[in-house]
Every structure is written in structure tokens, then in C-alpha cells.
Design a binder for these strands. Structure first.
Lengths: 135, 135
DNA sequence: ACTTGACCTTACCCTCAGGGTAAGGTTTAG
DNA sequence: CTAAACCTTACCCTGAGGGTAAGGTCAAGT
């Protein structure tokens, strides 16, 4: 006796916009739901939970491809938790690399800002350093 | 007597791919160059320097829109260095925020990974936490 | 003179994770 | 009966380019 709901209600319950729900359906993150005679999508509570799962995964920075893998494992009774963990560890590594890159940018940006007077004179150490490819 | 060069040579000298040079021309980061009778683009040394400027700016994480502003200031004899510095300071702030977001992701990801046995059992703390929207 | 290979041109579609809008059908409340 | 709120598909947009196709040009070697 699962209650079915329209895409708008599923959107409110899951925190995922209706537009994005349709997008997930098209890209295979969410199975195509039942429809009313008029063609309206009808979602189950289960579908809403999957949407919440996807949303939380997105918040954690997983890509759609990674989420597809996570969903397969989530639905697989015979998964090994090491498979899940490996996915997460890989993602952690990716995020750490992104952070490192941004931090390296920051170092240079801070140095440049420090050397710029920041007054109304046209002389600017920042522009000179960018132009001369320094740092 | 400025020597002019083809897009391939300009690409090698600037470190920016020919494809990307054309893209920069289309999006207004680089002025349209002279052409040979056959329609081949001809770049000056100055254009190569502007490409290097753009490349270095991209490395520092500036967006195309920000680079457009930097280029205007670079070419403006009457700029005030505070204008440049303000751009950089704003960008520094953006990058710091990105780092903070990634670090917050990392905290959760590390916690989750820690609580997952990572063996061949199907029980997985990671999947449970994502599904229950914890953290 | 001819051919081969390297180079150049424009034009089109692809990425990623959706957002915006249009044009039109459905349903519910007054 | 109508107006609001909801739903549908289809199309274009984002940023910063990459990939590929189909075709024109140029220089070197034969």
C-alpha cells in the first residue's frame, strides 16, 4: 500500500528540484517511475529515499558516475563493504588533490597581493608578475 | 618590423593550444589577429604575451570574466593598482571558500571511511550514513 | 610538375550537473 | 466555468575548452 506522489511532492520531500529529478531519470540515476493516465510521474517513498541518497552523495562531492556505482552497491545485498570503502577512499584522494591545488594557488595569490601597493598609482606588482609568468 | 607567426607557432610559444587560442578570440579574451590572403591567422609577439598573461591567470584560478577585467587594467596606463588588488583579494576570498567547502566534505568522508570495516561483509557504515543523511 | 604530409580553416557536437523558458495539457478549488 | 497551480516535453544556456570532420594551403622531396 505504498503511497505514490507527484514529482512536486517528491521534490519537496527529497530536497531535489523537479527539474533535477527528471534529469536524474534521463541520466539513469533514478529509474523511470510509474505514470498516471495523463502522463504524470508517480513516485514511491523508496524513490524519495533514493533521491535523498543521491542528494547526500552530491553534497559529499561525488560525481554522477560515482553515485551510479554507489547506488549499485547500495542495492546489492551481496556487496563487500570494501568496495564501498574503496570508492570513498578514491574520492577522498581526489578531494585532497583539489585542495592542494587550490592552496598552491592561494600561496601565489597572497604573495602577489602583498607586493601590490593597492593605491591609486598605476604601478602594479601583480600585473607585472602575471605578465612575466613569475611564481 | 614585428615578426608575425601562425597559430601553431603562437601556441607553442605561449603554451596555449591552437584550439584554445581560437576560443579566446571568440570569447573576446584575445583580439582578432591579422590574416594572410589564405585566411591564416597571424600573431604578433604582443599577442603571444597576452596569451601567456591569460594562461598564467588561468593557472591562478581566475575565470575568463575576471581575466577580461585584468586585461583591461593591464592595458590601461591610468589604472590604480588598488583596482587590481581588489580583484585579487576577491579571488583569494573565493578560493578560500572553495577550500573550506572541500575540507568540510573531507571531514565527513574521513569519518565515514573510518567507520566502514572495508571487508567482504555487506554491512557498510558508509552506505547507511549516506542513506540516513547523517553528518 | 606532382605528391605527400604538416599545417590551417570553419562547423558541429561533447563534457558536467543541472537551470531557464516556452508552449501546451491536467487537476483542483472557488 | 474559470483561474491557479501543477504537470508534460523540447529546446537552449552555463565554463572552459576538447574532439572530430571536411576541406583549403603550403613547403619539401622526388
Amino acid at each position: 500500500m505504498s503511497k505514490l506522489m507527484s514529482i512536486g511532492v517528491a521534490a519537496r520531500k527529497s530536497g531535489v528540484s523537479a527539474k533535477t529529478i527528471r534529469h536524474y531519470e534521463q541520466t539513469g540515476l533514478l529509474p523511470a517511475p510509474a505514470r498516471t493516465d495523463a502522463g504524470y510521474r508517480l513516485y514511491s517513498e523508496q524513490a524519495v529515499q533514493q533521491l535523498q541518497f543521491i542528494r547526500q552523495s552530491r553534497r559529499l562531492g561525488f560525481s554522477a558516475a560515482q553515485i551510479r556505482e554507489l547506488l549499485v552497491l547500495w542495492h546489492d545485498e551481496h556487496r563487500a563493504s570494501v568496495q564501498v570503502k574503496q570508492l570513498v577512499v578514491t574520492h577522498i584522494h581526489d578531494v585532497e588533490q583539489q585542495i592542494t591545488q587550490l592552496q598552491q594557488m592561494l600561496i601565489v595569490l597572497h604573495k602577489m597581493a602583498q607586493q601590490c601597493a593597492g593605491d591609486d598609482s598605476p604601478h602594479c606588482a601583480i600585473l607585472n608578475q602575471i605578465a612575466n609568468n613569475e611564481a
